[in-house]
């Protein structure tokens, strides 16, 4: 009996110690907070993946019936006639327009963006550099419809002369060739796109250049390098892969751009290597222009083309991230 009570009492004591411990616990609310925050963060992360999978699944589900009715090869055909009684459509002209206009935009935007980044980082007085960087970033905040309006109303009329001039001077190069250079061309669309992707390339490049270690800069300065020589010797080699990654992210953005291209570029069927001539088509602009009037098969075809765009942009963005990540290992 005594031994029993003794056992009991020691168990009680243990219990009360544990209870006291537990009673003190709620005072540190951190653990509950941690758990809530962790699950919230994990949930958000999972949600993103779920959304991407859902989008892909939706695109596939809507696209398959139309693809089954396609009388042409979806991947190799240049036709785009999904609303006809015998639908024939393929993505070649859309892929061509999208890739070419975006690549051209990237080629135009990258040198300018790098120039802006270098100017802000190394040439501009600090009082000017800060606000200037802010203004460039602000370009990203302009709605794309505004770029479209500007491209249509302001840029395009001026582009007619530019196109004719380029055609006359460089017509022997196929992309500047053709008989009727115009203003609503892939070239004009590329310029609008270039302005739209300028801020992302410029601000990422600026970040990369800011990370160049002081020791590298001083190494070239101490050898008697001018500012430009310092940039050539120390800044550009260090920032090269970062700039490449930044321009590829710009490329991805240009590929998905819809409304500005839809407004500037007149639709014309087929692949036209003469980029100064009016007309062309991109995935996104084609969807925006023809979705409303499309038949059910037509809509399915457009969604299928959207799926291809989704895959292309995904690949470009992943490649860009990989390039940027590889740079981090060097740094």
């Amino acid at each position: 009996m005594t031994s029993e009570t003794g056992v009991e009492s020691s168990a009680d004591r243990a219990e009360s110690v544990r209870a006291g411990h537990r009673a003190r616990m709620p005072k540190s609310t951190g653990r509950v907070g941690d758990r809530v925050f962790a699950s919230a963060a994990r949930g958000s992360g999972a949600l993103v993946l779920a959304i991407i999978v859902a989008i892909a699944a939706f695109l596939v589900w809507k696209a398959v019936p139309a693809l089954q009715k396609d009388q042409a090869n979806f991947l190799t055909s240049q036709a785009w006639d999904p609303n006809a009684a015998t639908p024939r459509f393929g993505i070649v002209q859309l892929a061509f327009g999208t890739v070419v206009s975006s690549l051209l935009a990237m080629l135009i935007a990258t040198p300018v963006a790098v120039g802006i980044a270098l100017f802000i980082g190394f040439y501009a007085p600090r009082r000017l550099g800060g606000p200037l960087g802010y203004v460039v970033d602000l370009l990203a905040a302009v709605p794309s419809i505004v770029y479209g309006l500007w491209g249509l109303a302001v840029l395009a009329p001026h582009m007619e002369g530019v196109s004719k001039g380029l055609n006359a001077a460089l017509g022997w190069i196929p992309i500047f060739g053709g008989d009727s250079p115009g203003k609503n061309s892939v070239f004009t669309a590329s310029i609008v796109l270039a302005i739209m992707i300028l801020p992302i390339i410029s601000s990422l490049s600026r970040e990369v250049f800011l990370q160049v270690p002081r020791a590298h800069l001083e190494a070239s300065l101490a050898l008697g390098a001018t500012r430009w020589e310092m940039i050539k010797m120390s800044v550009l080699p260090y920032g090269r892969s970062g700039v490449i990654g930044a321009s590829m992210l710009g490329l991805g953005r240009a590929m998905g751009e819809t409304i500005a291209v839809a407004m500037v570029l007149t639709y014309a069927p087929g692949v036209n290597i003469h980029l100064l001539e009016d007309g062309g088509a991109t995935f996104a602009a084609n969807i925006a222009n023809s979705f409303a009037e499309a038949s059910e098969t037509g809509r399915g075809a457009l969604i299928a083309s959207g799926l291809v765009l989704f895959v292309i942009t995904l690949v470009v963005n992943m490649a860009a991230r990989a390039v940027v990540a590889r740079r981090k290992e060097f740094a």
Binding site: P213, A215, H216, E218, A219, S220, A222, L223, M233, S234, P237, Y238, F330
Partner: peptide
């Protein structure tokens, strides 16, 4: 000419 505290050869050269 100048030599610095930490060796700073041009890393890409």
């Amino acid at each position: 000419g100048m030599v610095f505290q930490r060796p700073n050869p041009f890393p890409t050269m």
